[in-house]
Design a binder for these strands. Sequence first.
DNA 1: CTGAAGTTTCAGTAATTTCTGAAAGTTTAA
DNA 2: TTAAACTTTCAGAAATTACTGAAACTTCAG
Lengths: 183, 183
Amino acid sequence: MILASKIESFVMHCGEMGSRWGFNRTVGQMYGLLIIYQEPLSAIQISEALNISRGNVSMGIKELQSWRLVQVQHKPKDRKEYYSPAGSIWEMAIRVFEERRKREIDPTLSLLRDNLLTEPTNQQEEYAQKQMHEIHDLLETVTHWASELQRLSPEQLNTLMKLGAGVSKIINLKDKLINNGKV
Amino acid sequence: MILASKIESFVMHCGEMGSRWGFNRTVGQMYGLLIIYQEPLSAIQISEALNISRGNVSMGIKELQSWRLVQVQHKPKDRKEYYSPAGSIWEMAIRVFEERRKREIDPTLSLLRDNLLTEPTNQQEEYAQKQMHEIHDLLETVTHWASELQRLSPEQLNTLMKLGAGVSKIINLKDKLINNGKV
DNA sequence: CTGAAGTTTCAGTAATTTCTGAAAGTTTAA
DNA sequence: TTAAACTTTCAGAAATTACTGAAACTTCAG
């Protein structure tokens, strides 16, 4: 399988960015390929398109599945499995975001919670706990907000984002209304 | 320099999470240490506390500076440089967020922009460009929104986050007001 | 100047992560 | 059953990334 050069440049870029996005080069390439290629692809097609071993494809698919980013399909009269991206671009973004939160924030939150349960035994620990407390509260707020936002429909979220900083005006407006007892 | 066990567990955790947050283990540990430790620390103190070479500390500090996360200070009658975290926990979070956007999203946006400039030459490329277009628009919207939010004061942003999904009610409210020609 | 006290750089080594390919496992059609 | 067609696993090799320590560089007090 030979890729059109525009497609290839996108796929290779995904590979280079892969590790920054939380997976490795070949997993990044695989995901890029599945997104950009209209038809579902079999493991062997992926391994040929990217010049990587069949075993590596298997491991990569597993990884992408753990991120809930790929779907398996079957074609009639064909025992092979065919892979395609799971959900719309929008949904994929949400999933990457969510998974990264789980991997990057949740473990820290739980460590902080544990550490904050015990009393500080000296001045040094007291300061340490103060800092941990601040980090904890920040992460809690952000996590909570993120999960609330995820419950909005794509349209609502889009409206909100397009609103940009204008959202602050609306918050002020709300405050005014509340203060006037009108809401 | 010996660390209290609670401090140590936090520092080691930062090390383990380091690579997920965009730096490596020792850079993560160094940053954790600076955050949790009340006094500014010299390079030699850091290297002793973490059992890493002096040269590694120098490289790590450089890395943290490229993220704008540390500050250098001097003590009277002492030629050593002392390091401490730059800004409040809040500001640090903003900076990590911003730097990661630069490293994880901006390069992709620019690749997509370039690829979208040329006309597709066949059906396969047409589909590819459709996908790239969607990703591009999503990343643009998110990036733009993020930079708008950064312009809000911590207090405003906090209000907004605490509001959670309630923000949708407010958006609806705004729509109503606009439709009634009252705003 | 000089040299002591510090910082930075970087070649080579160590540690970690990723990838391959062959073997083992699974599924299904006949 | 059997065997073909496929998938998964995993030990070891390859590639990448991080770390050390010694040398080079910088700064400054005397």
